[in-house]
């Protein structure tokens, strides 16, 4: 009698494992490996090129407690950790948070994110609710609202730069109507520039939010609407008291998606203002890019990028717990 031998675990599903190699490599090398690398090197004094973490010199010298020394190249006292020849503890982060350009970037991002979130959620939902009224030409409206989303943020930035151009655009037209002192040059005004970008960003993104919301609305049991009509609830009240609470998951998901997208905002600003005037429309992604590739201060760029990652995690982790933590218990 021949005994059927159980195939080794390793070789079961071999084709599937083979097919998954790109995924495994991407997950491990790129998403885990590169993130860890960036994180580690954000604690180094890497300039143009990454500095080796340990040099032979380190073998012969005792790493110094950082709170004792003052580094020549960084005008700060290290607060924590030990330094080697390249390892500088939290120095890059100290410097980051005392850099006015970074602080401007964070302020800009917060401003942009706050307005963009509220605006695109409210407008997106209202448009979706109106689209859900069994209207005619629904497809036409949807096509119009969504086409900007198909285009590059570069295009969005450039076209709105043109429309907001004070010499030729809206300002000129309104002045032409007789309002000689009308001023509308958000992209040239450091105080308003983020709103100029907001106009373009909302233009591009709201259609997408509308589509998500509309899908959410269509997912609501039609009997709910019937029940509320029989109860004699006005439509607006049904939306506020019944439908919106029911769409909570859609709102949360949308919120996470918009926020994650906003943190990455880069192309749009590059095209529309390139961070100007001056440094007034800088965003974190731009800060990272310039320190990594032009200012030749790798450690600083990586520290900034790590802060961006932290920002994403702050949004992502609670969301994951709410969204998936509950499900597993069931």
């Amino acid at each position: 009698m021949e005994k059927a031998s159980r195939p080794s675990q390793l070789f079961r599903n071999l084709s599937a494992k083979f097919a998954a190699i790109p995924m495994v490599l991407t997950a491990l090398v790129i998403f885990v490996g590169c993130t860890v690398w960036s994180f580690v090197y954000s604690f180094t004094r890497s300039k143009l090129l990454p500095k080796p973490l340990f040099t032979t010199e380190d073998l012969f010298s005792i790493p110094m407690p950082t709170w004792l020394i003052k580094d020549g190249s960084f005008d700060v006292y290290y607060i924590t950790g030990f330094v080697t020849k390249s390892f500088v503890g939290m120095a890059q982060y100290d410097r980051l948070w005392s850099n006015s350009r970074w602080l401007t970037s964070i302020e800009n991002l917060a401003l942009y994110a706050g307005f963009a979130l509220v605006f695109s959620l409210v407008v997106g939902f209202i448009l979706a609710a109106f689209m859900d009224q069994k209207i005619r030409f629904e497809n036409t409206f949807r096509t119009i609202y969504l086409y900007p989303y198909a285009m590059s943020a570069i295009i969005t930035g450039l076209v709105w730069q043109w429309i907001l151009n004070p010499t030729f655009g809206i300002e000129k037209i309104v002045r032409g109507w007789g309002f000689e002192n009308f001023e509308f040059a958000p992209l040239q005004n450091p105080d308003l520039v983020m709103f100029g970008i907001l106009i373009a960003g909302v233009w591009q993104g709201t259609g997408f939010i509308m589509a998500l919301m509309l899908a959410g609305l269509r997912g609501i049991d039609e009997d709910i609407w019937k029940a509320s009509r029989i109860d004699g609830i006005p439509m607006w009240k049904t939306y506020i008291k019944v439908v919106i609470p029911m769409m909570r998951p859609v709102f949360v998901t949308t919120l996470v998606l918009i926020t994650a997208g906003i943190l990455k905002v880069y192309d749009l600003v590059v095209a529309q203002t390139n961070g100007g005037p001056g440094l007034s429309s800088q965003v974190p992604a731009m800060y990272v890019y310039s320190y990594l590739f032009t200012a030749q201060n790798l450690g600083q760029g990586l520290a900034a990028s790590t802060m961006m990652l932290l920002g994403v995690l702050i949004i992502l982790i609670p969301w994951t717990i709410i969204e998936f933590g509950g499900k597993e218990k069931r």
């Binding site: 709910i224 019937k226 009509r229 029989i230 109860d231 019944v242 609470p245 029911m246």
Partner: peptide, 20 residues
């Protein structure tokens, strides 16, 4: 209007307001 017809209705999917 449905509310003025003096009717009550019960649906297959119950159609209860889930958040209340």
């Amino acid at each position: 209007e449905p509310k003025d017809r003096g009717i009550g209705m019960v649906f297959q999917s119950y159609a209860l307001y889930p958040q209340m």
